[in-house]
């Protein structure tokens, strides 16, 4: 069995906020196959609940800017930047107008566009986590 991506003694946990069940499931499964622990949020409200869940240490969030609920991906990213800045946020979506705001939130380049290659998602998350680890 191959080694899992590891930060200390626990698997790196990624939260996926995506309301489309097919998109979310495919990306989540891909990331799990790569060795990540993945938790899934259907709405922004669920994501907020999971952020406060005991025993859950989220390292990165892959968030759809148009996620359902009272908090979308943008709102979640803003909240993270203010309250949980140790968590990396990657925004996904197709809205061109969102690019500038997403660029402000994601330090590592432009947002992804759907449909996206899971390998691109994985590479981006690894790069963000590695960059943070280096700067810790």
């Amino acid at each position: 069995m191959r080694d899992l991506p590891n930060d200390g003694d626990e698997r790196l946990c990624i939260l996926i906020l995506e309301s489309d069940i097919i998109v979310r499931t495919e990306i989540a499964e891909y990331l799990r196959d790569c060795g990540y622990k993945v938790i899934e949020a259907v709405t922004g409200d669920e994501a907020m609940i999971m952020l406060d869940a005991p025993g859950v240490r989220i390292k990165a969030i892959l968030a759809d800017v148009k996620a359902a609920g009272s908090t979308d991906g943008f709102g979640l990213a803003r909240w993270i930047r203010t309250n949980r800045h140790e968590i990396n946020v990657i925004l996904t979506g197709t809205v061109e107008k969102a690019a500038k705001e997403a660029g402000d939130l994601c330090e590592d380049g432009p947002i992804l566009s759907k449909p996206y290659d899971p390998q691109v998602v994985l590479d981006r998350i690894k790069r963000l986590l590695a960059a943070r680890h280096r700067n810790a």
């Binding site: 069940i21 979310r24 499931t25 499964e29 799990r32 938790i39 899934e40 949020a41 259907v42 669920e46 609940i49 999971m50 869940a53």
Partner: peptide, 21 residues
């Protein structure tokens, strides 16, 4: 969400392929 996450994680640990809705 927390209930779904708990049962989904436990089922995956047993080897099931789990889809969350």
């Amino acid at each position: 969400a927390i209930i779904r996450m708990a049962i989904a994680e436990a089922a995956r640990d047993l080897g099931y392929q789990v889809i969350e809705a």
